[in-house]
Design a protein around this nucleic acid. Structure first.
Lengths: 261, 261
DNA sequence: CAAAAAAGTTAGTATGTACTAAAATCGAAC
DNA sequence: GTTCGATTTTAGTACATACTAACTTTTTTG
C-alpha cells in the first residue's frame, strides 16, 4: 500500500509530528472520540501554521512537504493544506509514543522535574529504538499517560484521541478534574504546579471576571487565581455534568494495567 | 584559544570519536600511561583508515576534515594525517563518556545483554544532554568502566588511557586477568561470553599452536579453546609478572566509589 | 633511485534542508 | 464580481554531507 519509509530524518519526523498535532488541534470540534484509531480524519494543516510551529520559513515547508508526499507520508492539495497518510500517521504516533514514554521515564526513574523533560525527550525521540521504548514502558508498568496527562499511544498505534474541554471554558460554579496540560512551556508548568494544578487535581471555578480577567479557583481546598491564558492550556473533564458511560480517561502516569504492550 | 563549537552535527561527532580511537590504537606502543589527560599525543590518523572505519569514501573524509579543521577541532597536515586539537579531544572524550555510560545504564537498569547495547548507544550518544548522562552515571554509582571493561571518562574529561596487552600476546603458561574487550561485534561478545571471558575473569594460557592455531585456555576451572583472532580483541593485565606499583585498573561496571563525578 | 602502488586531494555532482525574493492562488470585502 | 491581503508555491541560492573520477603526493619496492 504505502512504501515503508526506510528511515526518516529527524526533520521529517518533526514535520510529521507537527502535522499530526496541528491537525488534531483544529479537528472538527468534539468529533473524534474513543480509543479508535479513527481514520485520517484530521483537518488539513496550513503551510504557514506548520512553518510557525516549526520555526522555519513557509517556503521551506512547501519544499519539504513535497518530499514527504513523494515518500507517501502526507497528502497535499495544492494551496489547500496537508494531511497525513496512514503511513505518516503511524510514524507520527510512534514519535509521540516515544516522546511520552521518555518523559515518563525521565521523571519516574531519573528524578527529572516534569517541567524539565520536554527538550530532552524532543531530542531522544529521534534516536531511541522501538525496543528501548518498549523496555522503558514495561519498566514503568506500561503507563497510559505521561506526567502531563497526555495519553501514550500503544506500540501498535492506538491512542485515546478524545478532545477535552479547556479549563478556560468552564463557567463560575463548575467543577472539573484536571486531565492534562501542555508540556511545551516549562514556565507554564511551574506556574501550574505552584497552584496545585496537575493531572488528577479537582478544581472548582469560583468566579470569572469579565474582559479576560483572572479566574478564581478552588484547587483541593486552596483558593487560587489564574490567568485565562494559562487556563486555556489546561484540559479538564467536566465533573458538573458527569461524563456519559464511556471508558474512563487516565489521570496520570505510572499506573499498572494488568497486561502489557 | 579554540572556538567553542556551538553545536556539532552527528557526523562531525562520529569523525571526532573515530579520530580519537584510531589515534589511540596506533599510538606509540606502551607510551601513554596513568589517568593523565596526556596532551594531544596520539598518532596522526590517515584519511583512508578513517574512511574505512566510518564506512565512507576517502574523498568525503578529506572534505569533512577541512571543515573540522576550520572549526578548530582537528589539525591536518596535508598528505600527512590528522590529529585532534584539545577542543576536538574534549568533544571526543565526552562522546565516549556518553557512549559508555549509556551502555552501562542499558545493561544495568533496562536488562539489555552486553552484546546488544552498542548500536543503541551509538545513536543515543548524539542526542543525550550532559545532564542526563550525569544522572544516569550517578544512578549507577558513577562506574569507572562499562560492561565491556572500557574505562568511562569523567565529566571533566579524565580517562584512563593506559594501553593494555592482548590475550593473543600471551605465551603458554602465562596467567592474566581479563580487563576489557571490544564492544563492536555482538557475535564476538557472545563467543567470548560462551567461554566465560568477561572483565575480571582469570585466564591461563595452557598451550598455543603454531601457524595461528587455536589457543588453549583455562578460564576459571574450565578448559577452553579460542581463535587467535578473538583473543586479539581481548585485553588483559598480565598476572604472570605482576603489575608495578600503579593504580589498579577497574574490572567491570557498577562499582561504587565513595565520591562522585 | 626510478617506477609502481598506495594514500590523499581536488573537481564536479547529488540530496536534504534551509533561506530570500518573486510569482501565483485563494478568500473576503467592498 | 473585482480587487486586495493573506497564503502558498516557485525560483534561485547556500551549506553539510556524501559520491565518482581524475589528479597529486608519498611510500614501497625491484
Amino acid at each position: 500500500m504505502t512504501r515503508s519509509p526506510s528511515r526518516l530524518t529527524v526533520e521529517a519526523e518533526d514535520y510529521l509530528k507537527a502535522i499530526y498535532e496541528l491537525g488534531r488541534r483544529n479537528g472538527t470540534a468534539g468529533a473524534a472520540r474513543g480509543a479508535a484509531t479513527s481514520s485520517v480524519g484530521d483537518t488539513p494543516v496550513g503551510t504557514t501554521a506548520l512553518a510557525h510551529t516549526l520555526g522555519i520559513a513557509a517556503a521551506s515547508v512547501s519544499g519539504m512537504l513535497q518530499r514527504l508526499a513523494r515518500q507517501g507520508l502526507v497528502k497535499t492539495a495544492r494551496y489547500r493544506g496537508t494531511r497525513l497518510t496512514p503511513a505518516g500517521r503511524t510514524a507520527a504516533l510512534q514519535l509521540i509514543r516515544r516522546h511520552r514514554v521518555i518523559e515518563s521515564y525521565l521523571v519516574t526513574r531519573l528524578g527529572y522535574d516534569w517541567d524539565d523533560v520536554h527538550d530532552e525527550a524532543e531530542r531522544l525521540e529521534h534516536a531511541v529504538s522501538p525496543d528501548l521504548i518498549d523496555r522503558m514502558a514495561r519498566d514503568l508498568g506500561n503507563p497510559t499517560a505521561d506526567p502531563h496527562g497526555a495519553p501514550i499511544p500503544t506500540a501498535d498505534g492506538e491512542v485515546d484521541e478524545r478532545r477535552l474541554g479547556s479549563l478556560a471554558a468552564l463557567g463560575a460554579g463548575d467543577s472539573a478534574r484536571v486531565l492534562r496540560m501542555s508540556d511545551r512551556d516549562a514556565g507554564l508548568l511551574r506556574y501550574l504546579a505552584d497552584r496545585g494544578i496537575r493531572p488528577g487535581a479537582r478544581v472548582r471555578v469560583e468566579s470569572r471576571e469579565a474582559f479576560d480577567g483572572p479566574i478564581v479557583l478552588t484547587v483541593g481546598r486552596e483558593r487560587q487565581t489564574m490567568s485565562p491564558a494559562a487556563a486555556a492550556q489546561v484540559w479538564v473533564e467536566d465533573a458538573t455534568h458527569a461524563p456519559r458511560g464511556r471508558d474512563k480517561r487516565p489521570g496520570g502516569a505510572g499506573r499498572k494495567p494488568p497486561t502489557r504492550s
